[in-house]
Design a protein around this nucleic acid. Structure first.
Length: 390
DNA sequence: GATCCACGGGAATACACGGATG
DNA sequence: CATCCGTGTATTCCCGTGGATC
């Protein structure tokens, strides 16, 4: 971001009288082009992928690190940069049409496992990373897409490095499943499995990403605050505090910062006050899930979660909560109930056993969010237009 | 017309508890 | 006393259907 741009953003921030100047810079689900303080890790990832610089296929790589350590950030940043230099779109355009032979090219495709859960969606994601053509999202079979991927990589000297991010989270495509899907093009594709643990039976280099150390996390927060918040909207002590509290987890820190900024905005305050941070921190559950999890859900599920957050249903049974949510949305109580059970199973919600006065029957339980609700509420694009039809 | 996907609805199964049974 | 049974809920599982897309 150049100086002009920074100034422009500050001005517009001032004009709106807001604490938040640039939501994107502040959002815990957005990665920076150059992650702060992760250079050594980037280097090790490049080492592991070394072979691509000789136009060869690297071994399968695993990138592992604890929650909030920036595994995703590192991989997306590296892949973007590598694509700039090595992908077909930059090298091959001029030459493919001439002489009939194509230049060597390597594509780097990062697939977000949270948003890509079926074979169809997977091939779709890979294909759109491999070409600039529009990829259909319906009306065509999975086989068809797989075939297109194969054709795309058919010429010798064309390769793809496919990262599967969050491969070890519930509901995502596991590394073994991805291997299966890529089997038809195994000769021209290498994988990078990104998650909290190595895939079972992993052979190949592993890049380990450590938690942020305290001062590194301070840098991360400072960087985000300086580009995302109005000048002087938060002081350094508060940032240090926040970093200490987050204990190396950048997601938690950024989610709290974002939440506090949202609260300050709603408060019409001109800076992020201690009380905002206090509440925002309490809103980030200990050992919770990344806010990207709920944000990757279908619009209807997000609607249900938005309603749930409004409801504060900590002491209501799941079925009561489900009916209450159904009343505020276009969904059926039965469907919402199933959603709630599913989400609890996946760890997005937590089930709290409910001691009911009633004697007979199985004990009901309540659910509560295990994600930062302030950030979710503000970032979710699903609208809860409460109009219940019928 | 083909295809994918998510909702909806309901059947099947698990659990809690009191009371009956051996 | 241990176990089984019946009833009422809670929870999980499964599959048909319809909307959206090409």
């Amino acid at each position: 971001m150049d100086l002009q741009e920074r100034i422009a953003r500050r001005r517009s921030g001032r004009q709106h009288g807001g604490v938040i100047v640039d939501r994107e810079q502040l959002s815990p689900v957005v990665h920076l082009a150059e992650p702060v303080g992760r250079v050594p890790v980037l280097e090790r990832l490049l080492d592991a992928l070394e072979a691509v610089f000789d136009d060869e296929l690297p071994p399968p790589v695993a990138v592992v690190g604890p929650p909030g350590s920036g595994t995703s950030a590192v991989v997306t940043a590296a892949f973007d940069a590598l694509n700039e230099q090595l992908s077909g779109s930059n090298r091959a355009i001029a030459t493919t049409t001439r002489g009939g032979r194509s230049e060597p090219a390597t594509w780097f495709v990062a697939v977000d496992g949270r948003r890509v859960e079926s074979a169809f969606a997977f091939y779709r994601a890979v294909l759109s990373g491999l070409s600039t053509e529009r990829v259909p999202n319906g009306g065509v079979g999975t086989d068809e897409l797989r075939e297109r991927v194969r054709e795309r990589l058919a010429p010798a000297d064309r390769r793809a490095i496919v990262a599967i991010d969050h491969h070890d989270e519930p509901g995502t495509l596991g590394a073994d499943r991805v291997r299966e899907l890529l089997a038809p093009v195994a000769d021209s594709v290498a994988t990078v499995a990104v998650g909290q643990r190595e895939p079972d039976g992993h052979r190949g280099p592993t890049v380990t990403v450590p938690s942020y150390r305290d001062h590194e996390l301070v840098d991360v927060i400072t960087e985000r605050a300086s580009s995302g918040l109005a000048a002087g909207a938060i002081d350094h002590d508060a940032v240090r505090d926040l970093a200490g509290w987050a204990d190396g987890n950048a997601h938690d820190a950024l989610a709290a910062l974002f939440g506090a900024a949202v609260l300050a905005t709603e408060d019409d305050a001109d800076r992020v006050e201690h009380r905002h941070l206090e509440v925002a921190r309490a809103d980030v559950p200990e050992d919770g899930v990344h806010v990207g999890r709920p944000l990757a859900l279908s619009a209807t599920r997000q609607q249900a979660l938005l309603a749930l957050v409004e409801l504060d249903a900590a002491d209501r049974s799941i079925s009561e909560t489900a009916t209450a949510i159904a009343d505020r949305s276009s969904l059926t109580a039965g469907t919402v109930e199933r959603f709630l059970y599913e989400l609890a199973d996946d760890g997005v919600l937590e089930r709290i056993p409910l001691r009911s006065g009633d004697t007979s029957g199985r004990q009901p339980s309540a659910v509560e969010p295990r994600f930062p609700t302030l950030a979710f509420r503000s970032l979710s694009t699903a609208r809860e237009d409460g109009e219940s039809v019928e």
